[in-house]
């Protein structure tokens, strides 16, 4: 057996993480519809395989950056959902003490920088982390999620090129869900695959079925190994799809109904379940038990969040600047 393939225990963990991602997003939508949760939300239902497949490879000390659609990345990275939920409720028990909200969830101490909503904004930060890992001779890598909308930003080209020439330990992960907000990628990019871009920087790349969690995991493992061995960055294109609109205020009318239906058939969670039922990894009762346990975890997270205090006015300016001396001790 290929030692890089996940064990059954790991597969079950992957499955539960994907369910937690999906059900977290569904719960957030429900809370929004009930008027209990404030704010604009960018949801990622449908992209669980990408989030979980990548994060399953990351180790302690590795650093992940994310986008304006960060909920599933944070759940997959293992930040406890109660801290994420509290952040979305703008409570001071949230992972950013309630001052970041939906588009800035993350926790550097748990391996994910608070997300950056600016398109492409996480790319240079991840690369900066990679530079520091290399400089400090740490065994860690940086990983960096961005959407297809980011690959035509200047910062993408400049940063990937720099990471390439310095052989930095970073994995560039393009979640290609076909639409930058409402713009179809084919209308803004001449090459057919984002992965083709890697040729220009002289780094390896792969286009991966981003709705197949095991394929994502294996590709990320190859890229992460290269990075840890000092062989430089890799560009992975994860082809996936968001079931919802760009944000809660976008009905997504620019997408053909047949296209949405086609991608719904490729739902990463249903695919995993179907396969797992065939191989005997999962049973129907195991699936419903798992859903019930995720539901309980989310109930607890919502209760925790709703009963938490709001941020205090005195805390407005805390965590804004870091006081640190860079001189000799």
């Amino acid at each position: 057996m290929n030692p890089s393939l996940p064990t059954n225990e790991q597969r079950l963990d992957i499955y539960r993480k994907m369910l937690l991602c999906r059900m977290f997003e569904d719960r957030v939508n429900s809370l929004f519809l009930q008027g209990r949760m404030p704010g604009t939300i960018h949801q990622a239902q449908g992209q669980e395989a990408s989030a979980v497949g990548v994060c399953h490879v990351l180790q302690e000390g590795d650093m992940l950056t994310s986008t304006h659609r960060p909920h599933e990345h944070a759940v997959a990275r293992g930040i406890p959902v109660r801290f994420l939920m509290a952040e979305l409720f703008a409570k001071n028990t949230g992972c950013c003490k309630g001052k970041g909200g939906s588009m800035h969830i993350g926790d550097a101490e748990r391996g994910m920088l608070p997300a950056i909503a600016i398109v492409g904004g996480g790319i240079p930060l991840a690369t900066g982390y990679a530079l520091s890992f290399k400089y400090l001779k740490k065994p860690n890598i940086a990983a960096c999620f961005f959407g297809d909308g980011a690959v035509n930003e200047g910062i993408f080209h400049e940063t990937v090129n720099m990471a390439a020439i310095w052989d930095l330990p970073v994995v560039f992960l393009c979640e290609n869900n076909k639409y930058g907000a409402s713009t179809l990628i084919d209308s803004v990019m001449k090459v057919k695959k984002v992965s083709t871009r890697a040729l220009a920087y002289g780094i390896p790349s792969e286009t991966v079925d981003g709705n197949d969690v095991l394929a994502v995991r294996q590709a990320t493992l190859r890229a992460a190994d290269r990075a840890r061995e000092g062989r430089g960055p890799t560009l992975l294109e994860l082809e996936t799809y968001r079931f919802a609109g760009h944000s809660r205020s976008d009905p997504g009318h620019y997408r053909p109904k047949e296209e949405v239906a086609e991608w719904r058939k490729r739902d990463p969670i249903v695919r995993f379940e179907t396969q797992a039922l065939q191989t005997g990894l999962l049973t129907d009762s195991a699936i419903s038990d798992c859903r019930a346990s995720v539901d309980r975890e989310l109930d607890e997270a919502v209760a925790f969040a709703e009963s938490s205090p709001s941020p205090l006015a005195e805390e407005c300016l805390t965590d804004v600047y870091v006081e640190q001396s860079y001189g000799k001790a």
């Binding site: 519809l33 009930q34 609109g245 009318h253």
Partner: peptide, 13 residues
């Protein structure tokens, strides 16, 4: 219909 688009609202229950 919002300022931006016409869209469906689903029931949360």
């Amino acid at each position: 219909e919002t300022d931006k688009a016409t869209m469906e609202v689903e029931t949360y229950v």
